[in-house]
Design a binder for these strands. Structure first.
Lengths: 110, 110
DNA sequence: AAGCTTCTCTCGATTACCGAGAGAAGAGCC
DNA sequence: GGCTCTTCTCTCGGTAATCGAGAGAAGCTT
C-alpha cells in the first residue's frame, strides 16, 4: 500500500475540531466522520489524535462536554464550544489564513 | 512571552526550502532571508530548524551542497536541488495544495 | 451466545520545530 | 595588532502534536 495516507497538517487539528463543533455539538466519533465527509476523504482523523485533542481543548476551556444518549440509543459524550472556544477558533483561523497565504506566496514565486 | 511570533506550519519547512532552492542555489543564511522576504515577514525560519532541515534534505538526497565563496568573499556552503529533489518538491506541493484546500473547505462550511 | 458496530479512552514512539547557544572567518576601525 | 560587527556554519536539549495500535464497554442483530 503506497502509503500516501493523508496525515493532518500538524497544528490544524485543534482548529478543525473547534470549527466542526461550532456547527453543532457532537460526540467525538461524529467529529471524525464530519471532518472526513466535508473534506471528501482528504482528511482522516486518527482516534488517538482525536481524543488527545479533545482533552487538550477541554483542559484549555475551549470546549465542554456532557453525556447524552445518541440517536442510536447509545451513551456518548457530546462536546460543545464555549465562548472562549469560539474566540479561540477566530484566532486560530486568522493565523491559519495568514500563514497558509504566506506559504502559497512562496510556492508561486518564480 | 505571549510573543507567538509566527512559527512555521509544521511539516511545510522542507517544502519551502526545496522551493526556495529551486529558484537558484543558495547558502542556508540566504534561504532564511529569501523566505522571510517573500512572505513579507510572515514566515521566519529559525536557524535551529533551518540546518536540521538542510541536513535532512541532504540525507534524503534531495539537495546537495558544496563550499563556495560568496559575493562578500566569505566561504559558505551552497545548496542546490537534485533531480530527485525537484520531483519531491512536486510531490510535497501537490500534497500541500490538496490538504490546505481541504482545511479551507472545513473552515468555510456553514 | 457470538459477533458487529458505535463510541470511549490510553500510551509509547516518532518527528518537527523552537530556543539558545557556540564557533569561525572576513571587514572595518583604531 | 587588537577590537567589534556581520555573515555564516552547526549542535543540542526540550516540547508538543500526531501516529499507530491497541483495550474496554454497551447496544444491535442473528
Amino acid at each position: 500500500m503506497a502509503g500516501s495516507k493523508s496525515d493532518m497538517i500538524k497544528g490544524t487539528l485543534d482548529m478543525l475540531i473547534l470549527k466542526t463543533l461550532s456547527l453543532e455539538p457532537m460526540h467525538g466519533w461524529g467529529v471524525c466522520e464530519r471532518i472526513q465527509e466535508i473534506s471528501r476523504d482528504e482528511l482522516k482523523v486518527n482516534q488517538g489524535s482525536l481524543y488527545a485533542s479533545l482533552h487538550r481543548l477541554t483542559r484549555e476551556g475551549w470546549i465542554r462536554s456532557d453525556w447524552r444518549v445518541t440517536e442510536n440509543n447509545r451513551r456518548a459524550r457530546y462536546y460543545a464550544l464555549t465562548k472562549a472556544g469560539k474566540k479561540q477558533l477566530g484566532i486560530e483561523t486568522d493565523r491559519w489564513l495568514r500563514l497558509s497565504a504566506a506559504v502559497h506566496d512562496i510556492l508561486v514565486t518564480t
